[in-house]
Amino acid sequence: MSDLQEQLSPHQEVARAELAKAFRGVLSTEAGKRVLYWILEECAIYRDAFCGENNATNYTLGQQASGRKILAKLDEIDPRLYPALLMDIAQIREVDRSAAEALADKQENDDDLEG
């Protein structure tokens, strides 16, 4: 990594630092984590690319290449960012699941009161 930094111009170093700061800013909020994870899902990172039809497979492989670029950037900034994102998303989904169950229970109880 120090070899890369030695090859960067001052402008490139500033741009790189600002991009890292922006990624950290996105990952500092629940909303940012949700959006970044959604982007990775849309990049087919979590799907099998091979579907038996060459054009569709190639399309998915292209999507995955974009997703891998995002993962590589996260790893370049800090190798702990992506694993932390996965852990945070698991927690966010658990909170969402609990909220959905509570809402369903409330609606069920409201229906019982009306009937």
Rank of each mutant, 00 (worst) to 15 (best):
M1I: 13
D3T: 15
Q5G: 03
E6C: 09
E6A: 15
L8G: 05
S9G: 07
S9D: 02
P10Y: 05
P10E: 15
P10N: 15
P10Q: 09
P10V: 02
Q12D: 09
V14G: 00
V14R: 11
A15P: 00
A15V: 01
R16M: 10
E18C: 04
L19V: 06
A20E: 05
A20R: 06
A20M: 03
A22C: 01
A22P: 00
R24W: 01
R24P: 00
G25A: 10
G25D: 02
G25L: 11
V26F: 03
L27N: 00
S28F: 03
T29H: 09
T29F: 08
A31N: 10
A31Y: 12
A31M: 04
K33H: 01
R34T: 02
R34F: 00
V35M: 01
V35N: 02
Y37R: 06
Y37E: 00
W38A: 11
W38M: 05
I39V: 15
I39P: 01
L40M: 06
L40Y: 01
C43R: 05
C43I: 04
A44H: 05
A44T: 03
A44D: 03
I45N: 03
I45S: 01
Y46V: 01
Y46K: 12
R47C: 09
A49F: 03
A49M: 06
F50T: 03
F50W: 06
C51L: 04
G52F: 05
G52E: 04
N54T: 12
N54F: 07
A56T: 10
A56N: 10
A56Y: 05
T57H: 09
T57E: 10
N58I: 08
Y59H: 14
Y59F: 15
L61R: 06
G62W: 00
G62R: 05
G62H: 02
Q63V: 01
A65I: 02
S66C: 13
G67M: 03
R68Y: 07
I70W: 05
I70C: 06
L71V: 14
L71D: 03
A72V: 04
K73Y: 11
K73S: 11
D75R: 12
E76K: 07
I77Y: 05
D78F: 09
R80M: 05
R80S: 11
R80K: 09
L81F: 09
Y82M: 09
L85V: 09
L85R: 10
L85S: 10
L86Q: 14
M87Q: 14
M87E: 15
M87W: 07
Q91T: 15
V95H: 14
D96Q: 15
R97I: 06
R97L: 08
S98I: 04
A100F: 09
E101Q: 08
A102M: 09
A104L: 10
K106M: 09
Q107H: 14
Q107S: 07
Q107W: 06
E108C: 14
E108Y: 08
N109T: 05
N109F: 08
N109W: 05
D110H: 08
D111R: 15
D111P: 01
D111V: 04
D112M: 15
L113Y: 08
E114M: 13
G115E: 13
